[in-house]
Every structure is written in structure tokens, then in C-alpha cells.
């Protein structure tokens, strides 16, 4: 390095040398950073993946007290048609008794309290809790039970006992009609 710096400094002084070379180096660096972006962005979900990001569910086939599992974005979503007793059980619980404090009303859509839609992914380490199928262990609170590390969820999908820190996540969904649910 020393040679060239000395040579040019004696000729033109430091500032002029800097400007041109700094411009070149700076622009090169900016170009390199910009060129990196496509190589990173290609790892984000592609257009076809994003196009599959919503799924429609026909609710007419799900009777009261029954639940189904829908695959959405590669993960299970539980759709439960709750009985009045289950709704009542969820609404009776005082907020103090909850780890992740949410009322039942916050977790369902107004006017559609009989439909509970939650991600079927335990908030502890991502296992799929039991309780959707007939005969499954529903845990101590009548909702879901995660067999991996023993988390118990209630009939609003809220964590009540066990290591999971949060309630089962509620995905964004809308009622297209009274009997058609769109998740995503």
C-alpha cells in the first residue's frame, strides 16, 4: 500500500485522491449489496407458495361437538364446532386462572362463538395436541392435550397447565358465508 499512497499524496494531496477512489469503492460496495438481495429474497416463499396461502372449509359437515383438522400452510388447523356447554365452560374461567390472559370472546368471531379455529401447534415446542378426534385424550380441561410434554388446553384453546407459555394461536380467518370459512 505504502508505495502508491506516497506517490499520489505528493502529487495531488490527500483529498482529491480520496474522492475518486472512495466514489469507486463506495459505488462498488453499494452494487455488491444490491446484487446480494435477489440471492437472499429467492429463499422467501415463492409466488405459487403464497397463492396457496388461503384455504376454504365447508362447515356444514361438522356437527356440534365435532372438530376437524385442516392443513393450512403445511400445518394443522383445528376447527371445532363447540357445544353450548363447552362455550359456557370457557366463559366461566376467571382471567386470573389463566397463564396467557385472553377472554373466550377475544378468541372467536362475534356471532360465531360456536366455531373455534386455532392452530394445531402446541406453543411449547410445536407438537400437534390431541383432542380433535373422537376418543382422544382432551386433557384436564376438555380442550386439547399435548402428549409431548403434557400441556393442557381448555375449550377455548387456552393453556391451562403444563409447559406451554401461550394459548393456541388463532389464525386469521373470515366467514365467507355462514357455512364457509376461509382461513388465511
Amino acid at each position: 500500500m505504502s508505495t502508491i499512497n506516497e506517490t499520489i499524496e505528493t502529487e495531488d494531496g490527500a483529498t482529491r485522491r480520496d474522492l475518486l477512489h472512495v466514489a469507486a469503492a463506495g459505488m462498488g460496495a453499494v452494487g455488491a449489496v444490491m446484487a446480494v438481495w435477489p440471492f437472499i429474497d429467492q429463499m422467501n416463499p415463492a409466488a405459487d407458495t403464497l397463492a396457496l396461502a388461503s384455504v376454504e372449509v365447508d362447515l356444514s359437515a361438522i356437527g356440534e361437538g365435532e372438530a376437524v383438522v385442516i392443513k393450512w400452510r403445511g400445518k394443522p388447523v383445528f376447527v371445532r364446532h363447540r357445544t353450548p356447554a363447552e362455550i359456557e365452560a370457557a366463559r366461566e374461567v376467571p382471567l386470573d386462572a389463566l397463564v396467557d390472559k385472553q377472554t373466550d370472546a377475544e378468541r372467536v368471531h362475534e356471532g360465531h362463538a360456536d366455531w373455534l379455529v386455532v392452530m394445531g401447534v402446541c406453543t411449547h415446542l410445536g407438537c400437534v395436541p390431541l383432542g380433535t378426534k373422537d376418543g382422544d385424550d382432551r386433557g384436564d380441561f376438555g380442550g386439547w392435550f399435548c402428549p409431548c410434554h403434557g400441556s393442557h388446553y381448555d375449550t377455548a384453546g387456552r393453556i391451562r397447565k403444563g409447559p406451554a407459555p401461550k394459548n393456541l394461536e388463532v389464525p386469521t380467518y373470515t366467514f365467507v358465508t355462514d357455512t364457509t370459512l376461509q382461513i388465511g
Binding site: 502508491i4 499520489i8 502529487e11 485522491r17 475518486l20 477512489h21 466514489a23 469507486a24 459505488m27 462498488g28 452494487g31
Partner: peptide, 14 residues
């Protein structure tokens, strides 16, 4: 960028 590199080169090579 190439034009700037050209002048930068000319200067260094002087």
C-alpha cells in the same frame, strides 16, 4: 461505475 473505475485507474496508473 465503470466510468468512475476508469478514471480511478487512470489516476492510480499515472
Amino acid at each position: 461505475l465503470t466510468i468512475i473505475l476508469y478514471f480511478s485507474m487512470k489516476k492510480i496508473w499515472k
